[in-house]
Amino acid sequence: MNGLPPVGKVDRELFEKTIYNKLGAKNKKVLIGPEHGVDASAIKINKNKAMVISEDPTFSMPSIQNQFGWAVVHICASDVAVLGVDPELMTICLLLPPETEDSQFQQIWNQIHTECKKHNITIVGGHTGVYPGIPAPLNGGGTVIGYGNPKDLTPPSNAQTGDKIIMTKGPAIEATGILAHKSEKQLKTKYNTKLIEKAKKRYHDMTVLKDAAIARKHSNAMHDATEGGIINGIHEITQASKKGCKIHKNKIPIPPEIKAVCNHHNINPLTSISEGTLLLTCPPKNTNKIQKNLKKNNIQSWIIGEITPQKNGTKIINKNGQEKQLKPVKTDPFWKTFFKKQPEK
């Protein structure tokens, strides 16, 4: 068996072994190139302008197809937003199974158009086609581009020793939002309707466009906690910035609806995919300003730790005060559940 994961994004070891040193021709215009755990790249246009560019797929399933177009835009555009710039341009590779109804295609594209228009994103190209072997509509790759001043960019590599780490919304946002739809019938045998509906609404929390726009001015680094959840997201920040961290587990809240869905599927909310959770680092003096502005926009946030010197290592303090090493997540537990064959409700 090779080093590929059973499902999900390749880990740092495989990335560095197979991809990192084989990136085609070198180009001096690349300010931020491919890095494991870094959301987007940056290309120098001139002294005061850089192009930020990202690429992301988007998966669907029957229970969430009526919201798929929304997800395509927000999941792809969020990777540019976390570098501190507004997403402006987008291309989409929309692949459809042969049984796709015309009305379904229209719904997906109308949602893409609506969300792009709402966030001032222009679709400038892409590919749309019908192909066998695809179980549900799939965004094979959405490319998003934005522009900003190089000195204002906020990649994970910019985290500084002494920075506080702020988390928005909570853990396992994407896992909860998607799995609450996928397993709604099963959840109803355990939990009340109000809790399940709250979990399903987390689907539309799978975006950091607003979070990042609010926080970028006062942050050093920002990162979208996608595969591997907040634990992996924090670890990726430390690896990119060559720093350590101290995370306080008792300061990470797990809202009831998130706890319910994760418990039902036996997945760890701290290591499950959490598109929509913004992890940012900032000087201690900026925390109040950032959190106050987030709260004004109805976005919850918590200070969950701090950035430390690299020699201190990556640490997480359990609720009993025990200190352990914060390790990268090898395989996100969400994917096994996502692709598991079960009745769609």
Rank of each mutant, 00 (worst) to 15 (best):
N2L: 12
L4F: 11
D11R: 08
L14M: 15
Y20S: 15
G24I: 01
G24F: 04
N27G: 10
K28C: 12
K29L: 10
V30M: 10
V30E: 10
G33L: 09
G37C: 09
A40M: 06
A42K: 04
I43S: 05
K44A: 07
K44N: 08
N48Q: 03
K49E: 13
M51F: 06
E55G: 15
E55P: 12
D56P: 13
F59P: 12
P62W: 03
F68E: 12
A71C: 07
A71G: 06
A71H: 07
A77Y: 02
A77I: 11
V82C: 09
L83Q: 02
V85C: 05
D86S: 14
E88L: 04
L95Q: 12
L95D: 06
P97T: 02
D102S: 15
S103D: 11
I108P: 03
I112V: 10
N120M: 04
G125C: 01
G125V: 05
I134N: 05
I134L: 14
I134V: 14
A136I: 10
A136E: 09
L138D: 03
L138F: 04
G142V: 10
T143E: 15
I145T: 14
Y147E: 12
N149D: 08
N158D: 00
K164W: 01
M167L: 12
I173M: 03
I173S: 06
E174M: 10
A175N: 14
G177S: 03
I178N: 12
A180W: 00
K182P: 02
S183D: 14
Q186R: 10
L187W: 00
N192E: 08
T193F: 01
A199K: 06
V208E: 04
A213F: 06
I214V: 08
A215M: 11
R216W: 00
A225P: 15
I234C: 15
C245E: 13
I247V: 09
A260M: 13
V261P: 01
C262P: 07
N263H: 05
N266P: 02
N266I: 06
N266Y: 00
I267K: 09
N268Y: 03
I273Y: 02
S274E: 10
K295P: 11
K296A: 11
N298P: 12
I299W: 03
I299G: 13
Q300W: 05
Q300A: 14
W302T: 13
I303S: 06
I304Y: 00
N318Q: 07
K319R: 12
L326S: 03
K327P: 07
P333D: 09
K336D: 15
F339L: 13
